[in-house]
């Protein structure tokens, strides 16, 4: 479902040109759980941003459901993104002024889903991620693990085909990290494709494939097992 060919991303600041990604070729099938690993600055997050249509590549092709999207405008990208891709960030990125419920509801608002339907779906997801009791709280009133569970809930609320997670456990202790990984794992088992950037080999084990990046290149791909259907 995701296919990138010769993907290249160059960041240009006033003085320096930095090649963040170079000649990336990657195929991700529906239902896969892919872990992306590599040292700091190797381009993991850049890759995730490109895959998440938050940014356009400098060169190369990007097919998502056989649609070439690498040259799409901001608006078109936003449209694809809305229903197809969910995001989970290391720093949770919840909106401080909104409650747990409202944070999770947000993607549905942008999809124009009616209020009653929104409430039903948010309640379901709250249930699934076990934070129902906290739905009226504001993000600062939650622990890190709880916040990340809210972020995951928000990522899945629109039933995206793929979840892109950028070090979802990076700011969490191991207990909370495990919780979040279990949650992602169970989502994957339910059929959601997941691409996760991580530093932790342990958590990379949750995936059925690990992609190693170094200096903007894919160096190795370890396929643990054929993904289950």
């Amino acid at each position: 479902m995701i296919s990138v060919k010769n993907l290249k991303k160059i960041y240009t600041t006033e003085e320096v040109e930095t090649t963040a990604l170079n000649n990336i070729n990657l195929e991700i099938s529906e239902g896969e759980f892919v872990a992306v690993m590599g040292p700091s600055g190797c381009g993991k997050s850049t890759l995730l941003n490109l895959l998440g249509l938050l940014d356009n590549p400098t060169e190369g092709e990007y097919f998502i459901f056989d649609e070439e999207v690498s040259k799409y405008s901001e608006r078109k990208r936003a449209n694809i993104r809305k229903g197809t891709i969910g995001f989970v960030f290391q720093s949770f990125n919840l909106i401080d002024e909104l409650t747990v419920f409202e944070n999770i509801e947000l993607p549905l608002l942008y999809l124009g889903i009616p209020k009653s339907e929104r409430k039903k779906r948010v309640d379901e997801v709250l249930e699934k991620t076990q934070i129902t009791a906290r739905k009226k709280h504001f993000p600062q009133q939650l622990s890190g693990g709880q916040q990340q569970r809210v972020a995951v809930a928000r990522a899945v609320i629109a039933n995206p085909k793929v979840i892109l997670a950028d070090e979802p456990t990076g700011n969490l202790d191991s207990k909370h990290g495990d919780e979040v990984m279990q949650l992602l794992s169970s989502l994957n088992e339910a059929g959601t494709t997941i691409v996760m950037v991580t530093h932790s080999p342990t958590y990379a084990e949750y995936g059925n494939r690990t992609v190693h990046l170094f200096d903007g290149h894919v160096v190795t791909e370890n396929i643990k097992e054929q993904f289950h259907v």
Binding site: L54, A78, R81, G83, F87, N93, P107, Y110, R154
Partner: peptide
Amino acid sequence: TKEIGIRKVLGATVPN
């Protein structure tokens, strides 16, 4: 900025 960023990632358009 952060809030706007999050909203955009979640699908908000420029007019939104």
